[in-house]
Nucleic acid binder design. Sequence first.
RNA 1: GCGCCCGUAGCUCAGCCGGAUAGAGCAGCGGCCUUCUAAGCCGCAGGCCGCAGGUUCGAGUCCUGCCGGGCGCGCCA
Length: 576
Amino acid sequence: MKAYIETTLNRALDTLGVPPDAREGVVVEHSRGTGHGDFATNAALVLARSEKRNPRELAAQIVRALPASDDIEKAGVAGPGFVNFFLSPGAWQSELGRILDAGDEYGRQKSDANLRILVEFVSANPTGPLHVGHGRGAAYGDSLARILEAAGCGVHTEYYVNDAGRQADILAVSVWVALLELAGERPRLPEAAYPGEYIKQTAGKLREAFGETVVHPWKDIAAALPSDAPEGDKEAHVNALIEEAKTRLGKDYESLRRDALAMQVEGIQATLKRFNVHFDRWFSESSLVADGAIEHALTRLSDRGHTYEEEGALWLETSALGDAKDRVLRRGDGTTTYFASDVAYHLDKLERGHDIALDVWGADHHGYVARVRAAVEALTGRGEAFEAQLIQFVTLTSGRMGKRSGNFVTLDSLLDEAGTDATRFFYLARSHDQHLEFDVKLAQQRSNDNPVYYLQYAHARIASLWRQLKEKGLDWNRSSARRQLSRLGTNHELTLIKHIARFPETISAAAADRAPHQLAHYLGEVAQAFHANYNSETILVEDDAVRSARLALASATQGVIASGLALLGISAPERM
RNA sequence: GCGCCCGUAGCUCAGCCGGAUAGAGCAGCGGCCUUCUAAGCCGCAGGCCGCAGGUUCGAGUCCUGCCGGGCGCGCCA
């Protein structure tokens, strides 16, 4: 519909002899407020400057030059020189016809470009359960991926499993200490180790597999360790414990480490499945080491002249490419850094044919963006192929209980309280680059105060109409309803059509802006327009033609809400 | 100290590439169920868009400074 107005406007500008390159900045947009029609253009305001003309006069000329059209009821000049377009009911009725024809596919776009995007999100260290902060990234990344796909992109999603570094060793010794405790030893948990119930649970499950083979007297182990914090250095202490575990357990250490990690990954997978979050691939960091991808990336960086050696370490010259300082790739002791793995991973992403590597990170990683972009630039010469979306922090509130940091509450416990649908909606209704205050009490309310039910309720109400229709022994079909659309004409009906007509452009905008919250807000408006219409006019009336037309509108509305909720990963219930 | 994000109604937040009287939900007040689900609808009230300059025909939106809040600045991952 907007495109139609644009072509109409351009024809008028052609008639007036405005050269195409003078139309820079001219836009057609949806009018704000009710008095300004359906669409508006700033053409006269933009052209007035270059043409040195009175904008209102120019606007009047544009209006006169508009080709005649049944779809445009009237066009007029308003304010400083806007041209407002008022569309006829007939134009909206035929728009609804096109929406019905599109069926379930309505809103989905086929793009010729077929941009390939790899969305990597969550990627939390597999050293414990996901917390509420991860949950926001999970909802965002999953929903963004669905939206990008609907907008015509080729989308692939990945979770990067950090299973190669020191964190994994710390997890392993944390579990080892818990195993010793189960065997009757009285070990002291290092300051730097992971505390928490889940460590004990992991140990409990692994106890049988490892039995007594990993049990050593704690006093012997402790004797070999430097003192822990607060007297000593906690990092040195835990490092020594890791070494102790490696020598004492031998090849059992690797198994313990691997199994402990696998159990954390399984736990994370279970939580995400419950949260309706899907990944196409779980990408293991250690596989980069195994298949030589890190060496491949480092060689490439050296070949391209971006590295140098200093103090025995290999550095990447990221500061020349926008980063604050250079970064170490290979330490003096020969081991590669986490950054080196990440560089190799991003090279791999692009070498697999993705046009954009889109990473969803917590906002606390923002300092990392410049160095990864610099690395991608150094590797491929196209740093812009790397894109990071930063998710701001979550704080939890519940009534007067005060605020809790979201990083201390597990996602599972939040889902226990509020459920997947409400939780996803609360995460997604806010812009991701805004701090989020999550009202747990509100999210778990099954009442009219809870905004997610507002959308679902609209869907359920429509579903109920179809059941009623069947009970009355009536039926409805699209092709005959299509001929009755001229029966729609009340303000509420036209307003609802205008809202559902914006679904495709809403998807495009949400995809382009990486902003699922725009879709959440849009669906609220659709539901609002539906509820208002539902209250003002009875849909299941006696008159066959009118009923058929009104059900056509209800059908299209239901389709938009169901598709929209699906893009947010939220269910669309048949009854409530 | 340097860097990134953010200050909009009592609260939580929208505000699309600068556009016309700044919007929504909750909280508050007042109406609407013998008719398709009242988890709904209709109405009222509520705002120096943090402060001060600047750019522009036009600024909540762009630029600069200041105030206030969050986060980050490892040969950790």
